[in-house]
Amino acid sequence: MPEPILEVENLTKNFGGLTAVNEVSFRVHPREIVGLIGPNGAGKTTLFNVVSGYYAPSRGKVLFHGKDISGKPPYVLAGRGIGRTFQVVKPFPGLSVLENIIIASFLRHPKRVRAEEHAWKVLEFTELADRAHQSAASLTLAGRKRLEIGKALALEPTFLLLDEVVAGLNPTEVDHTIELILKLRDQGITILIVEHIMRVIMRISDRLVVLNFGQKIAEGPPEEVAKDPGVVEAYLGVEKA
């Protein structure tokens, strides 16, 4: 096994009296796709927010390439190679799709002209090029989710956190996005993905981590986790998958 790219160690995040993430530990290795699943309110998004620097952990720590990154702000972590999408998408609505991607491209290409060139590549890759001059606000939900991925990709990350990028899409769009994610893995990007649709998560994940009420209740290959009685009760039972 190579060195892990991400190590989450005994991570706890409290909001006042509520423990959203409770003593969670797991690792992600280079070029893996790890699925993070669990019922609504299990703490998945909170965990993403801690890993990407939006919240400091209450206890425990997060290591990225072996270095402690707990409490470092998001813009520093973006520079280190962590890209993320938001479950509630965050386009810059008043700006064009192209401008949205250019802004993300500035991280690796500080010159305007180079950033724009790079942005066009990302637009081609995410199949948004034909909508480049539309306002981000005018995109459909599928388009906005794609823009969300495009912005994260424009950062040229080595590690990508995807929070429900498939939820709400129709089956064709779902397949489309799955293809995109697999292509990213093939390019060498390591991915931690939160997704509710079991068909998707079972198909693309090398490994699953299951959260319930903030605690990790299972971890392993998808087929094993799917048979785990605790998981079936906590999660699959609810979803009736």
């Binding site: 998001p74 973006a78 938001f86 500035f106 912005k151």
Partner: peptide, 20 residues
């Protein structure tokens, strides 16, 4: 780039932070 960066912060501060 400065102007676009400012507009990004204006439009969505948290979203801008994720982009470095």
């Amino acid at each position: 780039p400065f102007g676009l960066k400012l507009k990004a912060v204006r439009e969505d501060e948290q979203g801008a932070e994720a982009l470095g």
